[in-house]
Computed example of a mutant assay.
Amino acid sequence: MLRAITIDDEWPNHILLKRAIEQNGQLEVVQQFTHPEMALEKIHELNPDVAFLDIEMPDMNGLELAEKILAMYGQIQIIFVTAYSQYAIEAFKVNALDYILKPVDGQELNRVVRKIVKRTSQKSPESAKEAHEFMPKGKILCLGDFEVYGKNSTQKVQWMTAKVEELLAYLIIHLGKPVDKWELCDLLWPHLDPEKAITNLHTSIYRLKKSISNEQVPLQIKSSSNGYWVELEECLIDYQEFERLSLDLLRSNQQSTGEKTMTMFMKAEKYYRGELFGNKAYLWSAARGEGINQMYIRLVYRMAEYFHKNQLIEQELEHLKKVLLLFPYEEKACILVMDIYEKLKDKPALMRIYQQYSQYHLKEMGCKPSLKIEQHYEKLLKTL
């Protein structure tokens, strides 16, 4: 059994994390620290395999602590436990293995533990058991649309009302985090008086639970006196998997892309079917959705670099054209596609892609394309 330590300045977080680790059964928590300095003093004595670190701590934050731990004890695996996903990139910069968002979700912890075990076992290639480590019994698709499927079902759940559907979508985006009931009322029924709004919320929660039960969707709606949250069982969420894989790939941003990395790129790319919640266009999801969009665009550019380097022109063109289909304003994608058509000596295709790009700008933005892309287009035309 692997040995673990936890470091967090708030003791209640230790209790919740230790409980989740013990339920997993593959790690043993040998010590818990509320002061980073004490952990640094004891780490050689304890000889842990993994350290779970909070990021936001007074005096010394988790990022600084991780650098010191790795300098002293380079074999340890670092897992950050944080309430803020924006720390993920910074976490990977200090060579952390992964991160978990608070409050700690059992399924997410199990994923990270599998990664820890795989890394420490140093087995290659992966065993058949590892290759099939997780077969979800349900799935929730949020990219390109919002579709929920129950156990072993190919039919998506039909919700009683649009408000019930939006309620679940909001709870899914705040997965595992309690959402205040008045926040939900303001979101879904902003123009109703409080008494009517809270009645509607209770009715919608009842209908949501009933549909989940009838359709055997492997998730639970939990509640407290102040609000509600969602807990997953064996259920895959596409945007969650996309973000997880993408953040893993960001660690190799400055490294050359090999076949193994490309396999991960392709896996992440397949999860992306379009914008978060598709044409439902919830206003509250716009910022999160834009972050996912930009992550997808960056991934495709990395894939295009690999295809270009290995002279896989068809694959490069396919993925870049998909970016333009989803994001017709993306200048870099248009330039790269035109470059490919110039190399293929396909003047009609080059002219067509530029005309489509220009028409989009005139129709949607009321302006011509930038001088940069106009000049690049004219330069390419002269070579054909």
Score class of each variant (00 low, 15 high):
His191Trp: 06
Leu168Val: 08
Ala169His: 00
Ser211Asn: 10
Val164Gln: 13
Leu208Tyr: 03
Cys142Gly: 09
Tyr228His: 01
Lys129Thr: 15
Asn152Leu: 11
Gly138Thr: 13
Gln158Arg: 14
Leu201Cys: 02
Ser124Thr: 14
Ala162Asn: 04
Asp186Cys: 04
Leu192Cys: 10
Tyr149Val: 08
Ile205His: 02
Glu126Ser: 14
Lys196Thr: 14
Met160Gln: 15
His132Cys: 05
Arg119Met: 12
Asp180Ser: 09
Glu233Phe: 04
Ile173Phe: 01
Ile172Asn: 02
Phe242Met: 03
Ala128Pro: 06
Arg207Ser: 14
Asp180Asn: 13
Val148Tyr: 08
Leu192Trp: 07
Cys185Asn: 11
Gly144Ser: 10
Glu234Cys: 06
Asp145Trp: 01
Thr120His: 03
Pro125Val: 04
Pro218Ile: 12
Tyr206Cys: 06
Ala128Gln: 12
Lys129Glu: 14
Met160Asn: 15
Leu188His: 05
Glu215Arg: 09
Lys210Arg: 07
Gly150Ile: 00
Leu208Ala: 07
Lys123Val: 15
Asp145Lys: 09
Val157Cys: 12
Glu183Asp: 06
Tyr239Leu: 02
Phe134Ala: 12
Asn226Val: 11
Ile237Thr: 04
Asn200Gly: 06
Pro125Lys: 08
Pro136Phe: 06
Gly227Ile: 00
Trp189Val: 02
Asn214Gly: 07
Ser224His: 06
Asn214Met: 09
Thr161Arg: 07
Leu219Glu: 01
Asn214Ser: 14
Lys123Leu: 13
Phe242Cys: 05
Asp180Glu: 06
Asp145Arg: 08
Cys235Asn: 02
Glu126Gln: 11
Glu147Phe: 01
Lys209Glu: 10
Ser121Tyr: 01
Arg207Asn: 14
Val164Pro: 05
Ser213Phe: 13
Lys177Pro: 00
Lys222Tyr: 03
Ala169Gln: 09
Lys163Asp: 14
Asn200Glu: 13
Leu167Ser: 05
Ala128Tyr: 11
Lys156Ser: 15
Gly176Val: 06
Glu165Trp: 01
Phe146Ser: 09
Ala169Thr: 00
Lys139Phe: 04
Tyr206Ile: 13
Val230Asn: 03
Ile237Tyr: 06
Gln240Ala: 11
Phe134Met: 04
Ile172Lys: 01
Glu133Asp: 11
Ser213Thr: 13
Glu231Phe: 00
Leu171Thr: 10
Leu143His: 02
Ala169Gly: 10
Asp145Leu: 01
Glu165Ala: 07
Lys123Met: 14
Asp186Leu: 12
Ile172Met: 02
Glu166Val: 07
Val230Arg: 00
Tyr239Met: 02
Lys181Leu: 07
Gly144Phe: 08
Val164Cys: 06
Pro125Gly: 08
Leu143Asn: 02
Trp182His: 10
Thr120Leu: 15
Leu219Ser: 03
Asp186His: 13
Leu187Phe: 04
Glu233Asp: 08
Ile173Gln: 01
His191Gly: 02
Ile205Val: 15
Glu166Arg: 12
Gln122Asn: 14
Ser223Lys: 09
Pro190Met: 03
Leu208Ile: 05
Ala162Thr: 13
Asn214Glu: 15
Ile237Lys: 05
Asn214Trp: 05
His202Asn: 10
Leu192Lys: 12
Lys137Ala: 08
Tyr206Leu: 11
Ser204His: 01
Pro190Val: 10
Pro194Trp: 00
Thr203Trp: 00
Met160Glu: 15
Asp145Gly: 04
